[in-house]
Design a binder for these strands. Structure first.
Lengths: 196, 196
DNA sequence: TTTTTAAATGAGCAAATGCTCACTTATATT
DNA sequence: AATATAAGTGAGCATTTGCTCATTTAAAAA
């Protein structure tokens, strides 16, 4: 029998990410994707059930990749400061290295597909993160707080910064460029806010 | 001559917001909107040039409303703590009172329309906010920092919290409900992080 | 070499899309 | 009452949409 051409599947995935990132979810279509990937529309339906399945599958894949990248070299038993800083650096590096994947992901996060994505991500998240915050509380490094409050204070600022970078210009119209020193400055604020 | 029926325009606006909020930008269509608003498709084109004009016009309108609501009763000369707290409370109240408008806005913010929205919002923002941060720095209440860093630390956490609330469940699968005490707790973290 | 299996395809369908046009309706002005 | 003007309409066009099917192609198994 004939084998699957893994290059084709990869082309479909890559083009889908690129198209959504560049033209938005609202302009993404199967026929268009097929043409861009150099593939028949029917071929896409060998790999994916339908349009929704394609988008959710890819976004979950990318989400897992991003989470894994964020936790690379992360030691759950490290000090809170060090642990969080590793995550910040990893996450920023991933976004800068995978601009389109990050943009694709952000688009899906704000669409009607968001519900289906959350499960896969929260699972991965819970596994590796749960104990880290708990430990930091036990050791008296940070105050006890609901997980939502923690996430909002600890990560939302980083995501916002990355977003400013991707958009290329800031709130007041001037240019804005992400840098390690900007990240460090923001991190210091966040850490101070969370610390006892 | 015949007058414009302001109810019709309002119905179009309201339905558009509701449809995007409920079904996502990618499922929003003019024919669908016309039917939902009880209006002919052609009528929509009396008020708006095309689909893009409709979406950007409405989102700019809502964005201005939101910014105005956020700055209601805000005194640029108040202390930093008080000023920021007023903005937090206003913004949260607006989102809770206008769930669909907030969701609509968030969807547009992450679409290809985002560029056209930023101008209108940043204009409104700059007008009323610029001096507030500057003054706080001069009075020694907070450290000097780029505006993007300030925004990321001061507001991104609040937006994240509101998002958790709207999504109804949190990162780890449990229920999550926004409350004044949760908001206050988060605010204290943020304030501590920004303060000298 | 022949057979079997599944990958891959291009043409194209039914439905939906954004949008228009010839026309009707309502109301201020004459 | 007649006229002028712009709001408002329903049918529908050209195109695009998501998706399928009859068929062909490649390669493992016989």
């Amino acid at each position: 029998m004939r084998y699957r051409d893994e290059n084709k599947m990869q082309a479909i995935r890559d083009c889908a990410i690129e198209m959504v990132a560049k033209n938005g979810l609202e302009n993404f279509g199967i026929n268009r994707l097929a043409k861009a990937a150099g593939v028949s529309p029917a071929t896409i339906y060998i790999y994916y059930k339908d349009k929704e399945d394609l988008l959710t599958s890819i976004s979950i894949e990318e989400g897992v990749k991003m989470t894994r990248a964020t936790l690379k070299g992360f030691d759950p038993n490290a000090s809170f400061r060090e642990g969080l800083w590793v995550q910040w650096k990893n996450r920023a590096a991933f976004s800068l290295d995978n601009l389109q994947a990050a943009e694709f992901f952000e688009q899906l996060r704000n669409s009607t597909y968001k519900d289906k994505m959350r499960e896969a991500i929260s699972l991965e998240f819970r596994k590796s993160m749960g104990s880290f915050v708990e430990n930091a509380v036990k050791r008296g490094e940070i105050n006890e707080m609901p997980l939502e409050v923690y996430w909002s204070v600890a990560f939302a600022p980083l995501y916002a910064l990355i977003r400013f970078h991707n958009e290329g210009q800031s709130l007041d119209g001037r240019k804005f460029k992400f840098s390690e020193s900007i990240m460090k400055q923001t991190f210091d604020c966040v850490l101070k806010g969370l610390s006892k």
